[in-house]
Amino acid sequence: MTSTTSAALASAGWRKSSHSGDEGACVEVAAIPGTVAVRDSKDPAGPALLFPPAAWAAFAAAPPRR
């Protein structure tokens, strides 16, 4: 994984998950070179989780758990 700075996270093109409903529980993701960042949309200045692209792709491809 590459080094990711606060500036890179702040300027990233964040998008809301299609699985986030209107209940306010929203997850946003952003692609940064060499990294996929995930954050809580209610706290955009808060922490972000960083994943290697292959790990995120495996997570996103997994069937939903009910």
Rank of each mutant, 00 (worst) to 15 (best):
W14R: 02
G46Y: 00
A61D: 15
A31Y: 05
A10N: 09
S11I: 00
T2K: 06
V27P: 13
A12R: 02
G21E: 08
D43L: 09
A48F: 04
L9C: 04
S6Y: 06
A45S: 12
A58Y: 02
S17V: 09
K42W: 00
H19S: 14
A7L: 06
A31E: 11
A8S: 12
G34I: 01
A10W: 03
A25E: 12
S41N: 14
V27D: 04
P33H: 01
T2H: 03
V36T: 15
C26F: 01
E23W: 12
S11Y: 01
I32Q: 01
D22G: 14
M1C: 07
R39H: 09
C26W: 01
L50C: 05
A57I: 12
A57Q: 15
S17N: 13
A45P: 02
P33L: 02
E23Q: 14
L9N: 03
R65F: 12
S18D: 10
R65Q: 10
T5S: 15
A58N: 14
R15M: 07
C26I: 05
A60K: 15
R66K: 08
T5F: 05
V38W: 03
L50T: 01
A55N: 06
E28S: 02
A12W: 08
S3H: 09
W56S: 15
P64T: 05
F59V: 15
A55D: 14
M1W: 10
T5E: 07
S20L: 04
R39V: 00
C26N: 08
D43F: 01
A37S: 07
A61Y: 10
T35R: 13
G21Q: 07
R39C: 04
A37Y: 04
P44M: 00
W14C: 03
L9I: 04
P52D: 15
A57P: 11
R66Y: 12
A58C: 11
V29P: 02
A62L: 08
A57H: 14
